[in-house]
Design a binder for these strands. Structure first.
Length: 555
RNA sequence: UGACCCAUGGUGUAAUUGGCAACACUACGGUUUUUGGUAUCGUCAUUCUAGGUUCGAGUCCUAGUGGGUCAACCA
């Protein structure tokens, strides 16, 4: 059943590497988050990609926290990140790993470099170093400390580690090439002094390696074969390889891909933080957020996210993927798996004139027409019902299939009814009266009546109030970051959340638990909120059904 | 006036590596339907431009155009 998909450019490279026996053992990838924030949809694509490729080639994937900057990193994030990855359905090889576990090894690598005359302690200030590096269009200048004797460098670096110097007073730099057109090769900083408490190593260290001297080396230590990262690290690759060569360590291979962008979503940790801190949303897991926890709370199934990542492919060009593609995968999974339920959003009383006053009939409804095994449920039917305001019009346009004067419709899982009369006050419909055909009961209909429309309904006596959190895109513009004259924060959609506390559900909703998802018949998919305690049940709108009909008489 | 990367429909990716531009989403129009859902059928492209190589170019070569990335003691 599995369809063979064309290999993307990275997979083709891996096939080549396997053919050439570049890596005799298995393929090994890694996902390297920095524990300084929550994972978002952009990370999800990287996760699916790294784990997916390893799986495809019978390899393994490590989870490694890139925790080399104690200023911003926290254990809370470590836990949340693991939860998100597990929820997405992936399993890393062995225990979670940490770059901080390699601090001793990394330190020894630095000593090795110094001894080889390939690294030096620089006393320049950060401004001076920036000055030396210069601009990309012209060569940089060498630091006055560049040619310190090896012994002096060794002594100074040891004392840096011992805490003898204040923050920022000295750094360790790799001696590469100050004239390189690649800024990252102009004697990059590899160690800095930071007398700060680290979330795992505590106060053991006061010098910390920079990204370029931690990430690639960690890859090598873990025998990572393919280190897949986004395009902006392309310029780091020569340095990545330089360290492998000079340190004579395992030759991991870095390959870059284009990060994926989605319309109506942003994936910058800083900007996401601004939304949280400015109370534009209700926390990191607000259903409008692009965080994995937000999407989860909104009701996006992990499978839909995985399918989306698989289908969207991988390339090197800039891209903005339409959110509709993700949404179609969400609908696809939910259509298959969500039980249907009837909920009236804006109730109007409907009385069936010829139905016995005190009778309550139990109707049998299919939970999911796409899945026989989902079974059936019982729905009470009676003389007094509610239907949705949207489903009745006094003066309907041409192709209106719903209830109107002179019209006949099917009540889903109930009877066919025909309009008799209605009451209006100040132009607003207050109630409707119909008659039913007692030989038109769902499943045993021999009335011969054809009803074009089918409506959902609830029985007045047994209906249960529920709260509907109706979400729209967080931004009113598909690309909120693409406007020079406008801040993304000013493009927040004022209608991104509408709360409907007056909706009435059929009684079976009472058994709903947080995380359960439903298709509200004819409307949308909803997930029970994580904070829903039972009465009323709180439902978060996941995504609307496609719905084609539009009232063309309105403007 | 540096270096590197990228360019296929409205969107994202394909094209057996030089052989009829395909798949999915979106939009629009049919069919089916006790969800205006699902399913199903159909419609929507001078492959950025100009040259060149070739029987044949989205693919190779040259030039141009457009877009992106790089100058944190962040990752």
């Amino acid at each position: 059943m599995e369809e063979e998909r064309a290999l993307n450019f990275i997979e083709q490279e891996i096939v080549e590497d396997i053919k050439n026996e570049r890596y005799p053992k298995h393929i090994h990838t890694r996902f390297p988050p920095e524990p300084n924030g929550f994972l978002h949809i952009g990370h999800a694509t990287a996760i699916c990609f790294n784990f997916g490729i390893a799986k495809k080639f019978n390899g393994k994937t490590n989870l490694r926290f890139d925790d080399t900057n104690p200023t911003t990193e926290k254990t809370d994030y470590v836990d949340a990140i693991q939860e998100d990855i597990k929820w997405l359905g992936f399993e890393w090889d062995g225990e979670p790993l940490f770059a901080s576990d390699y601090f001793d090894e990394l330190y020894n690598y630095a000593i090795k470099l110094i001894k080889a005359g390939l690294a030096y302690v620089d006393d320049s200030t950060s401004e001076e170093i920036a000055e030396q590096k210069g601009v990309p269009t012209e060569p940089g200048k060498e630091s006055p400390y560049r040619n310190r004797p090896i012994e002096e460098n060794l002594d100074l670096f040891t004392r840096m580690k011992a805490g003898e110097f204040p923050d920022g007073s000295k750094v360790l730099r790799a001696k590469v090439d100050m004239t390189s057109p690649n800024m990252h090769m102009r004697d990059p900083l590899i160690y800095r002094i930071k007398k700060e408490h680290h979330h795992r190593t505590g106060d053991e260290w006061c010098i910390y390696p920079m990204y370029d001297f931690a990430h690639g080396q960690s890859d090598s230590i873990e025998n990572i074969t393919h280190s897949l990262c986004s395009l902006e690290f392309k310029h780091h690759r020569p340095l990545y390889n330089w360290f492998i060569e000079k340190l004579e360590i395992f030759p991991s291979r870095q390959i870059e891909f284009a990060r994926r962008n989605l319309t109506y979503m942003i994936t910058s940790k800083r900007k996401l933080l601004k939304l949280v801190e400015g109370n534009y949303v209700d926390g990191w897991d607000d259903p409008r957020m692009s965080t994995i926890s937000g999407l989860r709370r909104k009701g996006y199934p992990a499978e839909a996210i995985r399918n989306f990542c698989e289908e969207v492919g991988m390339a090197k060009r800039d891209n903005v993927i339409e959110i509709e593609l993700l949404e179609s995968h969400v609908r696809d999974v939910l259509n298959r798996e969500a039980n249907r339920i009837m909920v009236v959003e804006d109730p109007i009383p409907l009385t069936i004139a010829n139905y016995p006053e005190d009778q309550v009939e139990i109707m049998i409804a299919q939970n999911n027409p796409e899945d026989e095994s989902a079974g059936v449920r019982e729905i009470p039917f009676s003389k007094y019902l509610y239907i949705d305001r949207e489903d009745f019009m006094v003066d309907p346009p041409k192709k209106y299939f719903r209830l109107a004067p002179g019209k006949t419709v099917r009540l889903k899982n109930g009877y066919i009814i025909e309009y008799l009369s209605h009451n209006e006050e100040d132009g607003e419909v207050k109630s409707i009266e119909c008659k039913y055909f007692d030989n038109s009961k769902s499943g045993e209909d021999n009335s011969g009546i054809k009803a074009k429309g089918t409506l959902h309904w609830v029985s007045k006596e047994q209906a249960v109030k529920v709260q509907l959190n109706n979400y729209e895109h967080l931004f009113s513009d598909p690309t909120p970051l693409a406007h020079e004259e406008k801040e993304f924060i000013d493009l927040v959609n004022p209608n991104s959340l509408t709360i409907n506390a007056e909706a009435l559900s059929e009684p079976s909703i009472s058994s709903a638990k947080p995380g359960d998802y439903y298709q509200i018949f004819r409307k949308a998919y909803y997930a029970v909120d994580t904070k829903s305690t039972g009465s009323p049940v709180i439902l978060n709108k996941t995504v609307a059904l496609k719905g084609a009909w539009k009232d063309k008489s309105k403007k």
